[in-house]
Design a protein around this nucleic acid. Structure first.
Lengths: 229, 229
DNA sequence: ACGGTACGGTGAACACTGTTAGCGAGAGGG
DNA sequence: CCCTCTCGCTAACAGTGTTCACCGTACCGT
């Protein structure tokens, strides 16, 4: 199907994104320079414009690819466990999220550490990532029916209801609030760790992360699903 | 004491940082350009080198100033309430942190959304910010003696002990862990909100933030200290 | 009050950056 | 086999951070 031209074109495009990412991880976001990329690829700068309409566009598609990679990584961690073990699956996905983020701090900063760029290509990836957590939420609920607090703020309940309707999740409003709180904890801890804001309090945040997972499992009444890594 | 030269010098330095910050908030971190700043100040670019040894250094001192501003803001929120009301004080500081962050997203991104720069001038401000929360933690503990979970991971306990020793906080290890968990939740929620990663789930994160504060107050057994804003 | 000095600012220059325009060679498809 | 269209090139423009040599002027000590 793909003509030979198209194949080699896709290949060099992939190579361009590859060296762009290498520059990102070695020199930070400011080191992603069109001309430097072109040098490493073996081209001159204007040649890159045959593949990407601008540098911003290049990093945008790079962001999209990174979302894809993270999504795939989390999905793999989830599918490595049987579907019935919803609690173990959720814990595994959280661990995979932290592992990926710590292993790829520059990429994490690009995905989660800055306001989304204007021409937002990452929206799809972010939506798919939200989808992973949505199904995770639904599975947790259908499997365990953990206790949910009553008396939610009506404004909050309305927003959660709207999201539940848009995603078709089965869990009740309160459950979604509880699970969202868990995601906030996981993200907060990982972001603090990756950005180095915990370095002088916790040189190694891993035990606190595990403690957070364990506490959250117990909050859901599924403490037995938690096992030390 | 200050000679006339020193006064006018400090004044123009402040003006430079001022327009740098204005460029930051209007055009993002990439818009902080030496020559553009010089234009707005009414100088040529090399003139700025009489005040800052490099552009990186300028943004570093800007980061330091922003930490100072945030510190002062939080301290003001804390001191607006009587010292005995430790719970109300903690809640007020958390609200002030969110309010400042939401009102200054670009500055928040610079402070908390990227790995600390190499020549780290923000270390002092971050340490002072940590100090604010440390005294907050100590006050919460001496005032309420909330229940602390037993059976902490030994590796985690060792790190928390080291931090407690370095700051001279009075609270026991488990209490520090609980309070650190609260900070993780507050930071996580605020970062998610400021970076726009919650927009498609919660258009208005304020109710969830308030719910988080209320839950945490109840976790500490001081639910009566929480009042709707 | 005057002379020396150090400070603050300028213009030119260098090495970069992203981006556009125009051109040529070579591979692909008819 | 020839036409075409894609690809990569060079040249150029505007803008960036940074350094250098220079100069006027405000300050300071005598």
């Amino acid at each position: 199907m793909a003509t030979r031209r198209e194949r080699v074109r896709a290949e060099t495009a992939a190579q361009i994104k590859d060296v762009a990412r290498r520059h990102l991880v070695t020199g930070g976001p400011g080191a992603v320079s069109l001309r430097a990329i072109a040098r490493d690829v073996g081209m001159t700068a204007p040649g890159l414009y045959r593949y990407f309409p601008s540098l911003d566009d290049l990093v945008r598609t790079l962001v999209g690819d990174l979302y894809d990679e993270l999504d795939a990584c989390l999905a793999r961690a989830r599918d490595a466990l049987p579907a019935e073990a919803a609690g173990e699956r959720a814990i595994a996905v959280c661990r995979a999220f932290r592992a990926w983020s710590v292993a790829h701090p520059a990429e994490f900063g690009l995905l989660f550490g800055s306001p989304p760029l204007s021409g937002d290509t990452g929206a799809l990836g972010r939506q798919r990532l939200g989808g992973i957590f949505a199904t995770l939420f639904a599975d947790l609920w259908t499997r365990y029916r953990f206790p949910v607090p009553a008396g939610l703020d009506p404004g909050l309940a309305a927003q959660l209801d709207a999201w539940r309707a848009s995603t078709g999740t089965a869990a009740p409003t309160g459950a979604i609030g509880v699970l969202l709180g868990g995601w906030v904890r996981v993200y907060g801890l990982v972001a603090l760790e990756v950005f180095g804001h915990l370095r002088f309090v916790l040189p190694d945040p891993e035990p606190l992360f595990e403690e957070t997972l364990r506490e959250f499992a117990e909050l859901l009444g599924i403490g037995e699903a938690y096992r030390r890594p």
